[in-house]
């Protein structure tokens, strides 16, 4: 049992392939309460999307090897039957996908798709369900919802489609909502509209929200807590302020240094991370990040032999790094932070 609303413990999702075992998610643990937003950040191949699909039980029945525990409101989902998870999916937990054009069926009207989802979980007449769909579309800011409910997805613009997707995800008042790159396919002015909408809706529904993205700006706008993933593992976890003001993992420093920022004076140069993300079949031994880490030499040779543990440094801020805590803080304060702020 778990007293937390969502409690993921040592989740592992591995895929056997002809080339070897892909360790997409390799021992991930985190907790989330109702009304809170967790941002999961990472580059492609860090395991962030696989985690979300795993929580929804969408890897069940496939080739994936799943172990660990996922507790959702007192129920364990990894060992639950696919049929049971299916009943929860859409009602208790639902998902907003990245690309609304491919996540919606082109052959059915937007309304029909929302009505279908609603009627699977609720014994209501078509008429009531249709009324509900119209209400939802109005709620997410689609003009003339009575008319648009009968439109097909291709008749909507990108931003409207994403709104319709959100309406669909909200149709059964889910308590856990997972948004996988919800604004990546959108233009910046539309992205701002959708982020505002998601913030408002979360407040109204009091759901637990997980935002998965590679965009640190989006994460900072919405999240209470942030989980940084690398090579299938959490490498840093903390409040949004911990991650942006006092980051302690060299990878998080690298992400911050890689990103040009509009809210500060332009810097002369970006400070990228060398190399590229690892293949999940051949994750480097020891700390997965060590081949790209600029401070690997200061760990006393442990970097490529021992996997560091995710250790709490202060008040719920967790870091997976061999460097001693004082040294990490000194590096951040003297070597990293000053370079991010001015030319």
């Amino acid at each position: 049992m778990s007293e937390h609303f969502l409690d993921v413990r040592d989740l592992k999702i591995h895929f056997p392939t002809d080339d070897g075992l892909v360790r997409s998610v390799d021992g991930l643990s985190f907790k989330l309460e109702r009304g809170r937003t967790l941002g999961i950040v990472g580059e492609s191949g860090s395991g962030k999307s696989v985690t979300s699909l795993g929580i929804l039980g969408l890897h069940k029945g496939g080739r994936a090897r799943i172990s660990g525990e996922i507790w959702l409101d007192g129920e364990e989902l990894v060992s639950a039957s696919p049929e049971h998870v299916r009943r929860l999916r859409g009602k208790k937990m639902s998902m907003i996908f990245q690309d609304p054009l491919s996540a919606m069926h082109p052959y059915f009207t937007v309304g029909a798709q929302i009505i279908e989802a609603y009627r699977i979980h609720n014994k209501v007449t078509k008429k009531v369900a249709r009324k509900h769909a119209v209400d939802l579309l109005g709620r997410v800011g689609i003009p003339q919802p009575e008319r648009r409910v009968d439109s097909y997805p291709h008749e909507f613009s990108g931003g409207m489609r994403q709104r319709a997707m959100i309406a669909m995800a909200l149709s059964c008042d889910p308590e856990l909502l997972i948004a996988d790159e919800p604004t990546t396919a959108l233009d910046v002015t539309v992205q701002a509209q959708i982020l505002d909408l998601m913030r408002d809706l979360q407040r109204d529904f009091n759901a637990a929200l997980i935002i998965i993205t590679h965009d640190l700006g989006v994460v900072a706008e919405l999240s209470d807590d942030i989980l940084v993933m690398y090579g299938g593992k959490a490498i840093e976890y903390g409040s949004a302020e911990d991650i942006f003001e006092r980051p302690e993992h060299p990878y998080t420093w690298g992400l911050l240094g890689s990103m040009p920022r509009l809210d500060r004076e332009p810097t002369e140069r970006l400070l990228p991370i060398k190399g590229s993300p690892p293949s999940l079949i051949n994750v480097p031994a020891g700390c997965a990040f060590h081949p790209r880490c600029a401070f690997e030499g200061r760990t006393g040779g442990k970097a490529n032999t021992e996997v560091p543990d995710l250790v709490e440094t202060e008040g719920g801020h967790l870091v997976r790094c061999h460097l001693p805590r004082e040294e990490r803080r000194a590096i951040w304060a003297t070597e990293i932070k000053p370079n991010l702020e001015s030319a």
Binding site: A192, L195, G217, V218, F244, L256
Partner: peptide, 8 residues
Amino acid sequence: AVPIPDPK
């Protein structure tokens, strides 16, 4: 409209 990576 650009999201700013500064939670404060």
